[in-house]
Design a protein around this nucleic acid. Structure first.
Lengths: 154, 154, 154, 154
DNA sequence: TTTT
DNA sequence: TTTT
């Protein structure tokens, strides 16, 4: 339920391996650095490239799958929403962050030894049993547990 | 032409009237502050709202139309891409900005005295003849002029 | 979970009031006829319009909300997927249908007496208690019951 | 310019090599058969798959690039719109077709010998010089010619 | 800062 | 069949 639409669709390549963290409650938080590059010709006919590096967050089971299967360089489809956050550092300086919170992830390219995974985020992040346990390549079906609300970082 | 997909779809309401600027070359830059609100129930069953304020930039003719027809409170559909920028202030502190660069805009809601406009951005921002001239409600057809590349702020 | 992405985003106006049906199990099936119009200039500079009429299906609680709040003429945002079906009539002739199966719906325009509703479809269609009962304007939170699989028409 | 939004985003694999046709004016029409598969668990916990076969049309230069680089089995990203058509056969029977008209195409998977291509459709289909000529892998930049309107099949 |  |  909401008022408005906040939707992001990305296809890009990972600049690094996924970074994994876990909340006290054991929920996975996976952070991806995802590159999308646009190209245009300038007035001299030269090709100008510009790369955006998106910080993508995946929570719960979706984050576990991402951490398990994604690797630096891998191409991935992400669907989610934009979230803007502001923190004040110890130095009193305000810092701004923009994240893409993923609802859905799909590995692209298939092929040799690349595995296959796709998952969608349930209504809200779900407890993952023991962190880093073996995760099936295709998730989403058994998002079913409940989470202590304090665990959810948004 | 590009490598990857960087697509944003927003439906929200304007928190303020559009802000207009013009480059030296006369190209319009319209900035919108657009709210999207998501709602979820916390563990106590209370409704939790969270509003994201998107900074949306519209260039050239699309920006002129936005400036002409949009008003505070108005509901609008935006399609575009995410752009991350970093500037270093005179104090030496780095500042980060995230913009949604609009490719397409459509006013929603119709009705009494609300006008109607929809436009898409051409390949790259286009020179607008004299700034603030009368703009037809429905644009896109005559994006045809050329721009000095220095005018394009990205 | 899936292989591939099949996503549709529509903003349009209803050509008629919603059509409601219910499965034997009591699940609502709401069908909308939604118009989207594109415009282009032909070589003579004349404006050419073309309207697509989308057949949108909303199941379960999402369908109940649509049936309750939407009316002919109303503007609506739909997110969903395309589904192609083939039936063979009694005359032995094959008939093809294309539906947009909605995952999410949001009424647009707000304003006087138009109500407000937004909902998302849960993993799979959910049983609605008694058909046509009073439905809150904003759903999605309590998609929780289970459905006999025979009820699900896809 | 338009009233409404009619947007489709697909990621899928080609069931066949692209089919190429050319209008009398020499414009390429490329037709793809693109599979997207969704998976859900039925009440017995069995995995149920359903595959949609989308008929995707790419016109002009975009169609030439598709014809040149895509092959059966290849994974591709398509952005476009839905178009419904009705024809009456010689037998007097009405036939219905649903096409996805592509505005943008991007080959996925990259890697060994797979080439790389992405293109966007210009405002309206553009004349391609000689059909089947050598086409650069990344298009979109020089969509510039004009087309006899009769050539455009929609 | 919007909207319902 | 809608809407502007």
């Amino acid at each position: 339920m909401a008022r408005g639409v906040n939707k992001v669709i990305l296809v890009g390549n990972l600049g690094n391996d996924p970074e994994m963290k876990y909340t006290q409650g054991g929920m996975a938080i996976c952070t991806l650095s995802l590159a999308t590059t646009s190209v245009r010709k300038d007035k001299d006919g030269n090709t100008q490239e510009r790369t955006e590096w998106h910080r993508v967050k995946l929570f719960g089971k979706l984050g576990e799958i991402a951490g398990e299967y994604l690797k630096k360089g891998r191409q991935v489809y992400i669907e989610g929403s934009i979230r803007y956050d502001k923190f004040t550092g110890q130095d009193g300086v305000e810092k701004y962050f923009t994240d893409i919170v993923a609802d859905e992830m799909q590995m692209l390219g298939g092929g040799e030894g690349r595995g296959e995974a796709r998952a969608e985020r349930s209504e809200r992040p779900q407890r993952s049993a023991p962190p880093r346990r073996e995760v099936p390549a295709a998730a989403k079906a058994d998002f079913a547990d409940d989470f202590a609300d304090d665990d959810i970082p948004f």
